[in-house]
Design a protein around this nucleic acid. Sequence first.
DNA 1: AATTTGACGGAGTATCTATTTCACGGAATT
DNA 2: AATTCCGTGAAATAGATACTCCGTCAAATT
Lengths: 200, 200
Amino acid sequence: MPREYRMTKRADASRETRERIMNATMQLHDEKGVARTTFADIAKRAGIGQATLYRHFPSVGDLVQACGGHVWVEMRPLTPDNAAVAFKGLTDPTARLEKLVDEVDAFFSRGELRLHLAGRDRELVPELDQFLSAVEAGISAYVGEALAPMKLSKQSIAAVNAVMSFPMWQQLRRMKLPAQKSRQLTIRLISCAIGAAQDL
Amino acid sequence: MPREYRMTKRADASRETRERIMNATMQLHDEKGVARTTFADIAKRAGIGQATLYRHFPSVGDLVQACGGHVWVEMRPLTPDNAAVAFKGLTDPTARLEKLVDEVDAFFSRGELRLHLAGRDRELVPELDQFLSAVEAGISAYVGEALAPMKLSKQSIAAVNAVMSFPMWQQLRRMKLPAQKSRQLTIRLISCAIGAAQDL
DNA sequence: AATTTGACGGAGTATCTATTTCACGGAATT
DNA sequence: AATTCCGTGAAATAGATACTCCGTCAAATT
């Protein structure tokens, strides 16, 4: 008969190594990407044995998922449930567009490195793909919400989504425009995209 | 004193295994990406010993470079020296834009899989990066040539380059528009981009 | 025909990677 | 205090991967 075991003090220690693992993991993921980070790497960086690592996270997936939580918080992605409140009170279509661009740009800036690295390995690590799908869903929700009053065609919305995608953002960033000009360019590009896709 | 050795018949055999290696390599690169393809994989697929593989290609770089040549030919990328002739005789700016879109779209379609896979690993394999840089230089040359008569600002040209980038093409492709509509949308998007970036 | 050359591949070695085993020792419980 | 529990990490295992050595044999040369 197993004796009941509540574990108070030890839980703290365990939680602490768990956090050390996750810090080491995120550090390494940022340095060499997710797919190329090994268990041995992580254990060494965290200063623990590999068996300990396995006890806490039996598979890469578990690890990525756990880190995903942290990263999600740090990155503050746009979420569908925030979409509505973000645009509340903005009646002017242009103001909504500006708000959209600012929100998305701020988010991409926050997450630049990790979105880039995650994108590289999303086809190899299912959890990364989930993560990025969630991210994309959030952006899509913002786009939909921003454009809602305009009653646009499906195509127009899809076109705006394409322009507001992370790859496109990266591409525009390579132009190295000052923030204000970059903002303005993006806004114009979106306005254009709407019109361009409306009557196809 | 080394005896001189001209090698006629044997050269053929050697060249044939060399080609078998390159076929196997390109096959595997297409299946699992460049960075995740191993020497053992290639040797097994080519039906040869690993030592033979190393004799022909001492490093991954050599292999990638050699395959790059083949791929380059198969893909028929846009090259700076072809840019001028491609637009020769087209005086109407719109016609030039259409030509640009068609050429780039045809190229991206031809190279879709490999451009995608190469892009994933370009930071890990210097030769891939060179390859893609050359590809991008070609596209950029086409863009420059197409827009040359319009005397646009640097920014406008850069903006068009962003819209004509492979990542953006992939994004637009996800809309699954029929070819004609996709073409039209892209053309409009470019026209927009020009105006949008002109007076920043 | 005898001899030299060099491509070939089997069979290594060394390192890396994933995963498990196990004994230890401190914490939790009785 | 005695006993049970369980997190820990050193070390072992197994398989993958990079890279090399060397004997074989047909081709090339004399």
